[in-house]
Design a protein around this nucleic acid. Sequence first.
DNA 1: CCAGACGTTGTT
DNA 2: GTCTGG
DNA 3: CCAGACGTTGTT
DNA 4: GTCTGG
Length: 242
Amino acid sequence: MCGRFAQVFDDQGLDRVETILRAMIRVGSDPFRGSYNVAPTQAAVVVEGGEGPGERPRRGSGARFGLVPSWSKGSEDGPLMFNARSETIREKASFRNLVRSRRCVVPVLGFYEWQGVVGEKRKRPWFLSRADGDPMMLGGVCDTWVGSDGSELDSFAIITKRPDSFVGTVHDRMPLILEREAIELWFDREAPDREIDVLLNADPVEGVVSGIRVGSRVSSVVHDDPGLIEESVEGDQGMLFG
DNA sequence: CCAGACGTTGTT
DNA sequence: GTCTGG
DNA sequence: CCAGACGTTGTT
DNA sequence: GTCTGG
């Protein structure tokens, strides 16, 4: 789960993201260009903590959604690792080192989930975002793969966990959502494991996420426009045998 | 020591 | 790269 | 994550 | 059904 999200902000939203993360998303002549429909293998902006304790986060950009471990033989071998389970992230070879040294934040407008409904062929897409209207900060891990020609590929995976009671009605997993107060700790590379574990293992806070049903166009990655996050119950046949 | 693996979904 | 298994 | 495609032989 | 592409 959490295999699709919207990462696009207006000026006010960008200001808010930069305030919360204390990081630059817009850099000089390279303005932030988002997408309403980021899928695995596509690029998105991620933000990492600074190199040393107390250093400000820096901007990340062009990271591939779908982790490519630094030790991969090729950039395309292996399955798509776009999620990492919080319950097992410290055990898995692909993630256990990254959760200590390469934690990152993915600022998004919201994420999509597809709800399976008995008797319906197509799953229903939902757009889930913060009830308070703030941008949503997703916890992730990133890595850098270096090709034989020296070219670098940054990539990331989003951490998932048990859903809160609302998201649980749509899907059985949801992304790790970091509150403002947790950001500095998340970015601190010197943070003790047990403090990070608190963030990884905390029960989701009820009421943080709200959601709307959206149209089926989001299901195809070729679509990328504001209409994707507008409420829609198109094609809902209701109770056929009610 | 070397060789080999290293992952998540969802669905059944 | 780093850990596990033999 | 979902959508969409899904092949072989031999020969050039 | 299973794999690839975005």
